[in-house]
């Protein structure tokens, strides 16, 4: 099977304006993936499915991943020659920048016909708040139907072109997207036998301390 670099080259040749890049996967598994821009997502998916060398007819898994805003340190090293004629000094300049967060949808594609895979496709949204639309790949692979609904339900990615986009695991009146990293659960605290850490902090909010005076009545916990 072709490597991700070869597939990327063929895709760029076939769709000249498309944004296709290879995302390297560190670690022993070495499952590198193709990052594809939303504009050409559907066309690229159809190409991958119908191309005779790839024939990726089986979309095994469609997942969402939530990446929060994070601080990234860029290190730029410049070589400064020593005016006195000694060895050159290497000066490192570290700049911190804020990489905005995004939601990511990862597709794992295999070929049942040619028995190869996986080819991993990724699409990223613009940000986590308003630019959360991505093309749906359900018209290409039917197996994405429920999985994209799940990503919509739990992460909030809106898939354009999905035949039936509504919540699948939570009830329809639910408002949040629970799998996001910044989801806060409703405050429903019960008794814990040995609270510690942030559970202890939560306990202190709900169970107030005893009054020093003996005559003070016990306070009811907030329901």
């Amino acid at each position: 099977m072709e490597t991700p670099d070869q597939i990327r080259d063929r895709l760029l040749a076939r769709f000249p304006g498309a944004a296709v890049a290879v995302v390297a996967n560190p670690g022993p598994a070495a499952q590198h993936s193709l990052l594809v821009g939303g504009a050409h997502g559907r066309a690229i998916a159809e190409f991958l499915r119908d191309d005779p060398a790839l024939r990726l007819d089986f979309c095994s898994n469609a997942t969402g991943v939530d990446w929060l805003d994070r601080e990234v340190t860029d290190v730029a090293s410049t070589t400064v020659p020593d005016p006195a004629g000694g060895p050159a000094k290497v000066v490192e300049q570290k700049t911190k920048r804020l990489q905005p967060g995004y939601l990511e949808v990862v597709y794992h594609l295999f070929s049942m016909e040619l028995r190869h895979g996986p080819v991993i496709l990724r699409m990223r949204t613009g940000n986590r708040s308003d630019k959360v639309t991505l093309p749906s790949l359900t018209p290409v692979w039917r197996s994405c139907e429920f999985q994209e609904r799940e990503v919509f339900d739990l992460y909030g990615v809106v898939f354009s072109g999905h035949p039936d986009l509504r919540r699948i695991l939570m009830w329809d009146e639910f408002k949040d997207h629970p799998m996001r990293k910044d989801y806060a659960e409703p405050d429903d605290y019960e008794w814990e036998p040995t609270p510690h850490g942030d559970v202890l902090a939560k306990a202190k909010l709900h169970y107030p301390a005893a009054e020093p005076a003996a005559a003070a009545p016990k306070e009811e916990p907030k329901p």
Partner: peptide, 12 residues
């Protein structure tokens, strides 16, 4: 059902 009422000792 109500969660059990507990009163923490100061310093706990």
């Amino acid at each position: 059902w109500q969660p059990p009422v507990l009163v923490r000792k100061e310093g706990a």
